[in-house]
């Protein structure tokens, strides 16, 4: 919204500082982007994406990391999406904001969302890796990620269910539909874009995760044979290359571009989905 512009000293000062910060932000982040692309571009080719790393990652490609990341994301979602959908249904369809158990649940979710990822990693290490004896493995990593994205999933799915106008529930009831059928055949299909949005956001969150994976999925570089095998995610690969592998910068830059590109795709998907939601939402 445009405010009337009139030039007194205070206004000019505020405008000046605002423009300064805005341009600074643009400049810094623009530089970051440009730097990463200009440095990583040369190293990035088809072979980089499709071959295994050599020489501790200095040469070769990142195929195993792409596979490991995909497996981690897939299984994290596989574990947490059903739980997320059912919990969201419970919160949105069966409880009001004042309901006691719902408040407890909401409180737990907020807390869970605030747990630092390194702490989540410690828990995953102590519980999944040691106590359950899963060992450093994609499975342990995926389970830890699943817990991390649960709050995000539930909150977004709950919102999209609550945004469905109440009349649809009354309508369904007036047609004599049972609540279960109303939820599965009418409300969930109506919320499908919102659910997709929740999934996309969670994938973005999980893909950005590093610290929690270090002690759960481990950082073995080769192609994982099974879910019980240790695997290195793209983010962990960047960390390892820049910290422990002198001369790994080029590969790290190129890996960063791959990761950024995935994040950009996810972002575009989010924008598209939220446009869909605002357009399709029945008033």
């Amino acid at each position: 919204m445009k405010l009337p512009s009139n030039y007194n000293p205070a206004d000019i000062l505020l405008a000046g500082f605002s423009w300064l910060s805005g341009l600074l932000v643009l400049l810094c982040f623009g530089y970051l982007f440009a730097d990463i692309f200009s440095n990583g571009y040369a190293h990035l080719d088809w072979q980089f994406i499709t071959t295994a790393p050599e020489n501790a990652g200095r040469d070769g490609g990142i195929a195993p990391m792409i596979i490991s990341t995909t497996i981690l994301l897939f299984f994290a979602l596989l574990f947490s999406l059903p739980i997320g959908i059912f919990s969201a249904i419970y919160l949105a369809e069966y409880t009001s904001y004042e309901h006691r158990f719902a408040r407890l649940l909401r409180y737990a979710l907020n807390t869970l969302a605030a747990v630092p990822s390194i702490v989540m990693g410690m828990f995953g290490f102590a519980f999944f890796v040691i106590i359950l004896q899963i060992g450093f493995s994609l499975l342990a990593g995926a389970l830890t990620l699943a817990i991390m994205i649960l709050p995000l999933l539930i909150r977004n799915i709950e919102d999209s269910l609550r945004n469905i106008p109440h009349t649809y529930r009354l309508n369904a009831a007036a047609l004599g539909l049972s609540q279960v059928r109303t939820i599965f055949q009418i409300l969930l299909p109506m919320a499908k874009h919102g659910i997709a949005m929740a999934v996309v956001l969670s994938v973005g969150r999980a893909m950005a995760e590093t610290a929690a994976l270090l002690f759960t999925a481990g950082y073995v570089m080769r192609m994982p044979d099974s879910l019980m095998d240790s695997g290195r995610s793209l983010s962990v690969h960047i960390f390892d290359l820049s910290m422990n592998v002198p001369g790994g910068e080029k590969a790290a830059y190129a890996t960063t571009i791959v990761l950024l590109f995935s994040i950009l795709i996810i972002n575009a998907a989010t924008v598209l989905l939220s446009n869909q939601i605002t357009r399709r939402s029945p008033m």
Binding site: P165, Y168, N171, A174, L175, M190
Partner: peptide, 17 residues
């Protein structure tokens, strides 16, 4: 059974989308 026997039409047309 009741809602099968007595149908209701709402103010705003609400076909399921």
């Amino acid at each position: 059974e009741l809602r099968k026997k007595v149908a209701m039409i709402f103010q705003k047309p609400t076909p399921f989308p």
